[in-house]
Design a protein around this nucleic acid. Structure first.
Length: 282
DNA sequence: AACCAGGCGCATA
DNA sequence: TATGCGCATGGT
């Protein structure tokens, strides 16, 4: 008996693409630290997720990164950048560690990398994140993708495009159980479709203008705008301040971030966020 | 049963 | 400019 349709078990269990020479990259620390919400761990330590319409399973084997279901071309065009593999984290961590508090945060989870996510997915995800917890954020995004996203091979769903959400009403999104955030999502989608928000320009626009543009969306304030720029637009100098980072700043950096973080505030932020949230220091 | 979760909009002073 | 409150939902 033959099966013609490729499915999850096929494409994600084939021989993986192996990338050698990987360092400063821990899958759990990076994929389960609250910067992306579509990665799920397996008992063997691998993670399966969807980003920018592509599903993949990732694992580590020594110094190799194993990518299942990923053609070489997709790695070159997307995943290499997504996992930020072109950036020298060893050097950045060394510079951050000039400050003793940052040094502790870096040493606590030295395998964190800041992912380069799609601008729209990051924006929508962090709209959903407000006044919410990571577990429920993931559930909302999963239901949103299943309801409004395009099916992709393997039983996964792409993140819904702005076009797919712009035509919906809050009532349409009721099954997603996003609460008061549903209308924020729709407003963001409509402004993206109408080009009131130029998602591509956010990558290069002067930061004050980029922030101002994002904050024209109902439900996008300073923090969500900063997250969209850091996680979705490659702006590693952005520094989102949530409740955890607020505590860190009051208690550990009353005079502001140390100078050694200049230019990499967003990367420092991710080490600090994870440290504050999971180490029990506060 | 209050309180909290990767906040924000709005009213009020 | 600065506070304070309500907001949907679900987990402690």
């Amino acid at each position: 008996m033959t099966q013609i349709t490729a499915n999850f078990s096929n494409s994600l269990c084939e021989r993986p693409l192996a990338i050698d020479g990987i360092s400063d990259f821990d899958l759990a620390e990076t994929l389960d630290c609250g910067q992306a919400f579509r990665w799920n761990p397996a008992p063997d330590g691998s993670f399966t997720g969807v980003a920018a319409g592509r599903a993949c399973r990732v694992a580590r084997r020594g110094n190799e990164l194993l990518l299942y279901g990923v053609p070489q071309e997709d790695y070159d065009r997307f995943w290499f950048s997504y996992f930020d593999l072109g950036r020298n984290y060893r050097q950045i961590k060394q510079e951050l560690s000039a400050d003793p508090v940052l040094a502790r945060a870096v040493a606590y989870a030295p395998g964190i990398r800041v992912l380069n996510q799609d601008p729209w997915e990051a924006l929508a995800s962090f709209i959903i994140s407000q006044n919410n917890n990571v577990k429920r954020i993931k559930g909302i995004i999963e239901r949103l993708c299943a309801l409004c996203g395009e099916p992709i091979e393997g039983g996964f769903y792409a993140f819904p495009t702005p076009e797919a959400l712009a035509a919906r009403t809050p009532e349409d999104l009721a099954p997603v159980r996003a609460g008061f955030r549903a209308r924020y999502l729709i407003d963001a989608a409509q402004k993206a479709v109408s080009r009131q928000i130029d998602l591509a320009a956010l990558r290069t626009l002067p930061l004050p203008e980029a922030r101002e543009m994002l904050m024209r969306i109902t439900g996008v304030g300073v923090k969500v705008a900063e997250c969209a720029l850091l996680f979705g637009c490659g702006r590693v100098e952005c520094f989102p301040v949530d409740v955890w980072i607020g505590r860190v700043m009051r208690q550990l950096f009353p005079d502001g971030l140390p100078a050694c973080a200049a230019g990499y505030e967003g990367i420092a932020q991710q080490y600090l966020f994870h440290y504050a949230r999971t180490s029990g220091m506060l």
